[in-house]
Design a protein around this nucleic acid. Structure first.
Lengths: 121, 121, 121, 121
DNA sequence: GTGGTCTAGACCACC
DNA sequence: GTGGTCTAGACCACA
């Protein structure tokens, strides 16, 4: 049992935060995002950790780099973010939900009923 | 953005751990569970926090206390745990899942398909 | 002007070396490759640098990891290595070759002639 | 595997740099080039090494020496540089390119297509 | 000033 | 034992 801890790697949490900013349209394509050092100071984390998050997002083509200038939000960042989140949801979260459904003996049709109910509100 | 933090109250996290032990049948009815002091040392937490978790579970009739002896798993603990977890699941987790489904533009019938797929494995 | 220096990042040089081992069939699919620490000691480099190379290759699905055991050559490693090398060649090396061809005033048909000549040998 | 190393002799790397300066018309015929000593300090290399590069280029009639004054770019330096580079390119670089083409299973006509494509840009 | 790489050393979870 | 993450601090190239 572990307490008061978030096991997810910090660099992935940073990446998640950036995903949020993009999905909420707070950061738009072509916007310059904070420099590695500034961000690191801001969130009180080692610059290498921020760098790792940025590199991770760069590989996913969410952001791109202009040498000596900084990182910028890519053009299709919003769409790509949605796709990545969807994959994460289906591959990581849904299986847990399904496991709970089985464990707790809930019928899938009951889930559907609750979903339709929630939509009406 | 916040890091290395789990906002859920520690005593509820402890209670969750105990639910797990009961649902996994690791702790059976009439089993004596660890003393408040032992448990607190074990998980490196203040005894008061453990006591709060025990009190919480006692109120839910998951465990009961014999003065001067200790806490024991109640007879209907398994069934009650399932019900409590089911309520938690439907009230707290499902709405988030539904929110994501809508946000990511996934169809509920797709979820059902994925569920049936996962059961076949 | 720079001397006695190889600007390519060490972790990429390590990755290149691994590509070589795979292309030369010295490392076959399912082979366990050296542990991060062992390799680091062997080539006198910081373990983090080796880790970075391994992570890079893992993202490219050239190798995969089994927790607590080690890294292994992936099934399609050979084919993927060829494809990656081909991309590198076409995107990075060929443009330089073309630049030289233009700069030195060589005709592309002359290149073709030299190629056919070299094949006959 | 070897790291952080460039096997080409330093004096040849210096010569290459001078070729570059001539081909890019940065250094024109009759220009005085830096003194051996100045150049050596500038690129942090032993003066003897610079001298060797100058001697090499003098033999190729790319530069000439006026005793007590310094080294100067020869009249036909540009044309001679092109010829030397062309020979180097055809004898040293092209074979490697051809080897890669074969290894990676690329068709020579594909190369020609890519070349024409690159010229259009 | 920007990012990019590397080292050294630490601590963790999993097996 | 394995990899995985993080920190601290350094040096570099590019602009």
């Amino acid at each position: 049992m572990e307490f008061a801890k978030n096991n997810k790697a910090i660099y992935l949490q940073i990446a998640d935060g950036i995903f949020e900013n993009i999905l909420s349209k707070k950061w738009m394509p072509e916007d310059r995002i904070p420099s590695v050092r500034d961000f690191a100071v801001n969130i009180e984390v080692n610059p290498n950790t921020v760098m790792r998050a940025y590199t991770y997002l760069q590989e996913k083509e969410i952001i791109y780099n202009q040498r000596g200038i900084g990182f910028f939000v890519s053009d299709g960042a919003y769409e790509k973010s949605i796709n990545i989140r969807k994959t994460q949801f289906v591959e990581n979260e849904l299986p847990n939900v399904f496991k709970n459904i089985d464990l707790l003996g809930i019928d899938i049709t009951e889930i559907e009923r609750l979903y339709n109910l929630s939509r009406k509100r």
